[in-house]
Design a protein around this nucleic acid. Sequence first.
DNA 1: AATCCGTGGCT
DNA 2: TAGCCAAGGAT
Length: 360
Amino acid sequence: MPRKSPAKPEPAARVPENLPDRLLAWYDRHRRLLPWRAGPGERADPYHVWLSEIMLQQTTVVTVGPYFRDFLARWPRLEDLAAAPLDDVLTAWAGLGYYARARNLKKCAEVVAAEHGGVFPDSEEDLLALPGIGPYTAAAIAAIAFDRPATILDGNVERVMARLYRVEAPLPKAKAELRALARRHTPEYRPGDYAQGIMDLGATICTPTKPKCALCPLTADCAALKAGDAETYPRKAAKAERPQRYGLCFAMIDRQGRIALEKRPEKGLLGGMMQVPTSAWRDTPFADGEVMPPVAANWRKLDGQVSHVFTHFALSLTVLAATRVKADPAYRWVGVDELGRVALPSVMRKVVDHVLAKSA
DNA sequence: AATCCGTGGCT
DNA sequence: TAGCCAAGGAT
C-alpha cells in the first residue's frame, strides 16, 4: 500500500527578524489615542485594560468609547463594580449586545475583588481562569497591562498573518496555523505595544476590504501583496444562512402612559434583560387571533413590523397595543422618561419606539 | 467541534 | 440592500 502522502509542507515561514521593530516604529508614529490607552511609555491600569477588552469583544472601537467612559465614571475602581447590583450593570450595558459579557464582567469583578485582593493576576494562565476571559483577552491583558510577551490572536492578527503568508486554509480551521505564525512574531521587547500595534495595523491599514498597502510598514514581507490578492485573505468557510423568525409583542399601556415590561430568563438570548411581553419566536408568521394576549383589553394591531437581526437569525415582530390597562404588579411599569434606567436590549427599544410612534 | 450569543456601521 | 464585519467566550 502506498503510504499516506505526507502533510503538505508548511511554507518555511521564515520570520523577518526586524518585522516587530518595523511594526513598533510604525506604531510609535501612528498610535491612536483611545480612552483606555495609556500615554506613550506608560503602563495602562489593568482594570481599564480588562474593562475595555471585554467591551471590545466583537464590538467596534467607536461603539465602545461612550460605554467605557460611562462605566469608568460610574464605577471608577474594580471594587465599585464588584459591589454594584447586576441590574445596574446590565442597564449600563444595554445596547452593547452579547449580554453574557456583562454578567461575566460582574462575576469577574467579584472574583478578583474577593480572591485576588482586588488586583488582576498578571499571567495568561490565571487570567484565563476568570469569567468572561478567554484566550484572546487573557493574552491581551497580559501583554497590554503587564507587558508580558503573550501572543494575541484576534480578527486583526488573523487577517495580517493570513496575508503575510497567504494562508490558504479557511477560517475557522486555519486558527491553529495562524496562531503558530503569530507566536513566531511576538517580541520579548515591548510586547504590549506590539500587541496594540498589530491590532491597530489590522484596524486601519490591513483592513478587510481595500487594504491600504501603500501605507503598510510590512509590504516587504507580504506574500499576498506580491501576488496581488491581499483582499482575498483570510479565506473563510461558507457560513450557514440566517433563518427568519416571527413573533408577537404585547404592549400594555396604563392610564399614566407607562408600559409593562418583564424580565427575560437569566440565561440564553438577551439573558436577564427586560422585554415587552412577547409570544414565542418561531419559523412561521402568526395569524390574527392565534395567540391569547396576556390580559383582556382593547387590543389593536399596529401597522408595520419591528425587524431586528441577531447573529444567527432575523426576527420580525408584529406589535399589538392596548391602552388604559390596569397596572398588574406582575409587570414592571415604566414611564417613557424612565426607559434609560431599564436594561432594555436594542430589539425591545425598537418595539417601544414603534409603539410610541404608532400611538402618538 | 459546532452552535449560540447583539449590535450598528459600511459597502 | 443584504451581507459583511468588529480587540471572542461559553458550552
